[in-house]
Simulated assay, not measured.
Amino acid sequence: MSSAARYYRSYIGVPLTTPDGHDIGTLCAADIIPRQHSNDKVERMEQLETLVIYELEFRQQTKIDHLIGALTRSVFSEEVQKAMAFI
């Protein structure tokens, strides 16, 4: 079997759900080797999901100046550069 024709034989995944209940994707692990996933591994994936959501929320929060509700200076500068690239 060529390396391009490999098929997944094992998959484990948990939904990525924001604190306000929006599903934004899936955190998953796949392998070409068949595996049995214990409850412990499912719990670890759920812990990783919590960590991923925390990190995404943290990154989003660092883009906003919560005192005035506007983008931070660095994020504003990045957004201006992106907008200028289209002109």
Rank of each mutant, 00 (worst) to 15 (best):
K82Y: 06
I68Y: 01
F58K: 04
V80T: 09
E79Q: 13
T62G: 04
H22G: 09
L16R: 07
T62M: 15
S77A: 09
E78V: 06
S77T: 12
G13Q: 00
R73G: 05
D40P: 02
A29D: 02
E49V: 01
C28S: 14
Y11T: 08
N39E: 12
L51M: 12
F76C: 05
R73F: 11
L56T: 08
T26E: 13
V75L: 04
L48M: 13
S10F: 11
Y8V: 08
D65V: 03
F76Q: 09
I68V: 10
P15L: 07
S10P: 05
S77K: 13
N39V: 11
V80W: 08
D23V: 09
Q47F: 09
V14G: 10
M45A: 14
F58P: 01
T62H: 14
K41A: 13
E79W: 05
S77H: 12
K82S: 00
L51A: 15
S10N: 05
P19D: 05
E49W: 03
A70S: 09
D23A: 07
R6G: 06
L27N: 03
F86T: 11
S10L: 10
F86E: 12
I68W: 02
P15A: 07
Q61R: 15
V75T: 09
T18F: 05
N39F: 11
L27I: 13
I32E: 06
H66Y: 05
F86W: 02
D65S: 03
V14D: 08
Q36N: 14
G69Y: 04
G25I: 03
V75W: 03
K41T: 12
A70T: 14
P34Y: 00
R35N: 08
D65T: 04
Y7F: 01
E55C: 10
R6A: 09
E79K: 08
T17I: 15
I68M: 01
